[in-house]
Amino acid sequence: MDAPKFKRVILKLSGEALAGTMGYGIDPEVVSSIAVQIKEVVQLGVEVAVVIGGGNIWRGVAGSTKGMDRATADYMGMLATVINSLALQDALVQHNIVTRVQTAIEMRDVAEPYIRLRAIRHLEKGRVVIFAAGTGNPYFSTDTAAALRAAEIEAEVILMAKRVDGVYDSDPYKNKNAIKFTQLSYIDVLNKGLGVMDSTATSLCMDNRIPLFVFDINVPGNIKKVVLGENVGTYVGGDFIDTSV
């Protein structure tokens, strides 16, 4: 068996990924399938941390555009990420993967508070750590939370799990002639407004030299393929990688 290319990774999941075809809420079968993919990576000896969005339940930006106070709307979105994190934790536990949820907003009855060194210790012991509630601050996305946590725990890469198989120059669902990129620089993402991450998150990754892999989470085994270095999705980083090997 090939050796994994990374020792410690952050998996970034959108909230919509947990909804499946329902488009809203949590589909237990989809969550279970994601848990299976994570288990495959854990069994390779890779340390896995997860950041989940909350868009399948609530989007703070959407609420604020309809008159709600932005900070209040964002806090509601953070709580939605906690719900998703607990759902994924339950699925992982059912697959015999020891998991901890750490939340940036203190709620000790359901999750640990986020403590960087404790999170690293959990990872070193082979536990999956799910970071909930974003950064704990309004006006910041869960993409930014993923970039921030990756820097804090010294993750080698962020795995951006999407519902498309990479980064395109336009929406492939709306434009059948959309062109897929295999590799991009951080500057390309920022200048072209490609929507891989928001600009704050992208800049944070660029400053800390944290590469990204964007891939389709709906294809079973894709997380494992990325970790093993297979040519899946789109690579975003400061230096291009050799995909000819």
Rank of each mutant, 00 (worst) to 15 (best):
86 L>Y: 08
118 R>Y: 02
191 N>V: 06
228 L>P: 02
170 S>L: 09
214 V>L: 07
50 V>I: 13
109 D>R: 14
164 V>M: 05
182 T>L: 10
27 D>G: 07
223 I>E: 13
127 R>T: 12
104 A>G: 05
132 A>E: 00
115 I>M: 05
143 D>G: 02
109 D>G: 14
54 G>C: 07
129 V>N: 07
229 G>F: 06
99 T>R: 04
35 A>Q: 06
219 V>P: 11
80 A>Q: 03
190 L>G: 06
83 I>C: 07
76 M>L: 14
114 Y>T: 13
139 Y>V: 12
26 I>V: 09
11 L>M: 06
7 K>L: 08
71 A>E: 08
159 L>G: 02
53 G>R: 12
147 A>F: 07
186 Y>P: 00
244 S>C: 10
132 A>I: 01
136 G>A: 08
38 I>T: 03
122 H>K: 05
41 V>F: 01
89 Q>F: 07
157 V>F: 08
5 K>N: 04
99 T>Y: 08
55 G>S: 12
130 I>A: 00
105 I>C: 03
188 D>I: 02
243 T>G: 04
50 V>S: 09
80 A>C: 00
168 Y>P: 09
159 L>C: 04
177 N>E: 15
243 T>D: 10
46 V>M: 02
140 F>R: 06
5 K>F: 06
100 R>D: 09
127 R>D: 15
218 N>Q: 11
105 I>N: 06
105 I>S: 03
170 S>W: 12
51 V>E: 08
112 E>V: 10
136 G>M: 08
157 V>A: 06
13 L>Y: 13
141 S>F: 03
178 A>R: 05
208 N>E: 11
70 R>C: 01
15 G>T: 01
234 T>E: 03
47 E>G: 04
74 D>S: 08
183 Q>A: 03
229 G>M: 00
241 I>W: 03
36 V>A: 15
135 T>H: 08
53 G>I: 12
215 F>P: 00
91 A>G: 06
166 G>I: 08
236 V>G: 01
99 T>Q: 07
173 Y>R: 14
92 L>M: 10
233 G>H: 04
126 G>D: 05
220 P>R: 05
127 R>K: 14
165 D>H: 13
6 F>L: 00
60 G>N: 07
94 Q>S: 15
116 R>N: 09
136 G>P: 09
100 R>Y: 11
68 M>C: 05
69 D>T: 06
152 E>S: 10
87 A>H: 04
